[in-house]
């Protein structure tokens, strides 16, 4: 990935991760800033432009670093469900991504004070076992070559057996760490959806190959059929997807699977529409229920049921998780 510039927060200059990232980015314009929000929180930013001309921002995360999981996210039956924000924004450009409505900027912020995340996790573990989705606000696996942050969270899982870490990705990583409390979660979408809406992500075949490599390496693997996107030919393309996945993957080796239709906070949707006036997904006439924009209940149920029914023939029902259950 090419970056238009790297903004380095003054406080972040001396962190080892800053130096390691800058070493990997030769011949790049480096701009010193007092605070990452001077760039990230500017008014009237054009997110679409920034996704095409992304800058990297290296910063120190102060205040909260670990958050309670949101109601639209799945806890997979785990009680203490949190997510960590060690990177904000993603190198990929999925048309439906909630990050486009969540942040004011399309630039990517990497927080380099990893030792503070270690302290936060250790502190939270005092309250009991913890389930952390580390890759919600970015794709850490896709950025691992540059930031090493997927490996960082894998190390954290290895060193803390009460910590269960999920690394969700639309990339196709080639190396994996077999750690019992680390789950590699692959988002699985039909090729038609990937081509149309998941710009720059790995093709379906590469994701499935990668998932198999993870399984062969003895890793825990989750497949996420989430978000399901409504299309006129939904049953055709998702039917073919299920055929492809079921012939490529031995479901008995999976930790579990998730199914979820597209949904997004109503506030985020409003911002997404402003930023992407040509987006078919942003402008779909959703139903707003409990402040969440989602498909009509009948459509939502039909889509989930269709995929779930196919999954039930492949994996135990207790291993299928749905977002609105």
């Amino acid at each position: 990935m090419r970056y238009s510039a790297v903004y380095v927060e003054k406080k972040a200059e001396d962190y080892p991760l800053t130096k390691s990232i800058l070493d990997k980015l030769q011949d790049i314009r480096i701009i010193s800033v007092d605070h990452y929000k001077d760039i990230f929180d500017r008014k009237r930013q054009d997110i679409a432009f920034q996704k095409e001309n992304p800058a990297l921002i290296l910063a120190v995360r102060e205040g909260r670093r670990i958050y309670k999981g949101a109601s639209v996210c799945q806890s997979f039956g785990n009680r203490n469900f949190y997510y960590a924000s060690s990177v904000m924004n993603c190198p990929f450009d999925c048309e439906y991504c909630y990050l486009k409505g969540m942040y004011l900027s399309g630039h990517i912020v990497v927080f380099v004070n990893t030792s503070d995340y270690v302290s936060d996790v250790k502190e939270s573990l005092k309250e009991g076992p913890l389930y952390i989705c580390a890759s919600y606000d970015s794709d850490l696996c896709a950025l691992d070559g540059l930031t090493g942050l997927a490996s960082f969270w894998a190390d954290l899982a290895r060193d803390n057996e009460d910590l269960l870490v999920e690394l969700r990705t639309k990339a196709a990583p080639s190396s994996f760490r077999s750690i019992p409390n680390l789950i590699y979660a692959f988002t699985i979408s039909p090729e038609e959806i990937i081509e149309r809406y998941e710009r720059n992500t790995a093709p379906l075949s590469a994701r499935l190959d990668s998932a198999n490599r993870a399984l062969d390496a003895g890793c825990r693997v989750r497949l996420c059929f989430d978000p399901l996107i409504k299309t006129d030919d939904f049953e055709d393309i998702y039917g073919r997807l299920m055929d492809t996945v079921s012939s490529a993957i031995d479901f008995s080796r999976l930790t579990d699977v998730s199914v979820g239709t597209f949904r997004i906070s109503g506030d985020y949707l409003t911002r997404m529409r402003r930023a992407y006036p040509d987006s078919e997904i942003a402008w779909y006439p959703y139903v707003i229920k409990d402040k969440v924009a989602q498909y009509r209940q009948a459509d939502d149920k039909a889509m989930q049921d269709f995929v779930e029914l196919r999954l039930e023939g492949l994996i135990g029902k207790e291993k299928i998780f749905k977002w609105n259950e």
């Binding site: 001077d38 054009d46 001309n53 800058a55």
Partner: peptide, 10 residues
């Protein structure tokens, strides 16, 4: 201080 965005094509 103000920060205009930098484009790849610049």
């Amino acid at each position: 201080k103000l920060y205009p965005d930098i484009a790849l094509w610049q």
